[in-house]
Design a protein around this nucleic acid. Sequence first.
DNA 1: AAAAAAGTAGGCATTTATGCCTATATTTGA
DNA 2: TCAAATATAGGCATAAATGCCTACTTTTTT
Lengths: 74, 74
Amino acid sequence: MEYLDESSFLIAFGKNLRKYRKLQGFTQEQLANDLGIEISQISRIERGVINTSIGNINSISKVLKIDIKDLFDF
Amino acid sequence: MEYLDESSFLIAFGKNLRKYRKLQGFTQEQLANDLGIEISQISRIERGVINTSIGNINSISKVLKIDIKDLFDF
DNA sequence: AAAAAAGTAGGCATTTATGCCTATATTTGA
DNA sequence: TCAAATATAGGCATAAATGCCTACTTTTTT
């Protein structure tokens, strides 16, 4: 198991989220709308610009209908 | 797979974190010191009072030497 | 190539997490 | 039971995420 520094972690997480979002057939806008959050936030999370909350990630996994653990599996 | 609302999720997450922290033989203070964050934050996370960041959780898994996915496995 | 769709960027105000500190409560061990 | 260790609580200042908005860039589709 490898541990990343925060910046690398956020970028890797974002890439993985993007993968699952597309896999489930969502645009950033659809995901943001279903979540009730800003589309710009999705963009920032996927690019690793911001360090979002675990609650937010729980909501995202709910909307995408995936296991939250998958979002941390990379 | 079951999806929790945010409040229930944060409480469940906190309980799980506490379980793994004790399992790895850390006090809240030791964990906070190793992380370089406030002990009061650990307490708040474990009680589900705050909605901490994914970067913080990555750091915690690193210090506890566990798989980050375990912290989301409940 | 042109138009449409999707994603990126940045500013500003607001909300929330965090740091720092002190005091209180609970749990553990002698 | 008493003392020590561990955890909880709250206030205040600061930093960071978020909401809301507009403009620009990149990608996709026709």
